[in-house]
């Protein structure tokens, strides 16, 4: 029975597991400074991103270089700064430092077509990939 087997596991196994778990927790909490996980709400990025999906995002890239066209980013909503938008970079003007954002579903997206281009400084987070739901796991 499984409860019997568990009782006879050698001590070293617990130590190894404990060390691995500890290292994992330390790595995650260290990485948490620049990694985060967010949930998608709304359908303007369909079919790429669907409502309810969970994404891994990071903020180490954009202090070093500007966003590139095609990347999916988080930006403060210019009309409601308490809200964060998720959109794709449609254009970047190197001279003015203005970025145009667009949804992947143009018919169901409020984006730079209505609120205009945003200053590049309003974009801090880059979307790395999706980890939930598992069948849709992958880089973005």
């Amino acid at each position: 029975m499984s409860t019997e087997r568990g009782r006879h596991r050698p001590l070293s196994s617990f130590l190894v597991r404990g060390a691995a778990l500890g290292a994992g927790v330390a790595a995650v909490s260290f990485a948490r400074r620049w990694l985060d996980v967010v949930e998608v709400q709304g359908g303007s990025m369909a079919p790429t991103l669907l409502p309810g999906e969970w994404l891994l995002v990071e903020r180490r890239t954009y202090p070093r270089r500007p966003p590139r066209v095609g990347e999916i980013v988080l930006a403060a909503d210019p009309r409601d700064p308490t809200r964060e938008l998720i959109k794709r970079v449609a254009a970047l003007d190197g001279e003015t430092g203005l970025v145009s954002l667009a949804g992947d579903a143009p018919d169901a997206s409020t984006d730079s077509r209505s609120f205009g281009a945003l200053p590049v400084t309003s974009i801090r987070w880059r979307v790395i990939g999706r980890y939930y739901p598992l069948p849709r796991l992958g880089r973005l």
Binding site: Q41, S44, W54, D77, E84, L85, I86, S109
Partner: peptide, 14 residues
Amino acid sequence: LRPTRRVHAHCDIP
């Protein structure tokens, strides 16, 4: 693994 916040793939009138 649980998301810390929601981000909006926003549309005024979906």
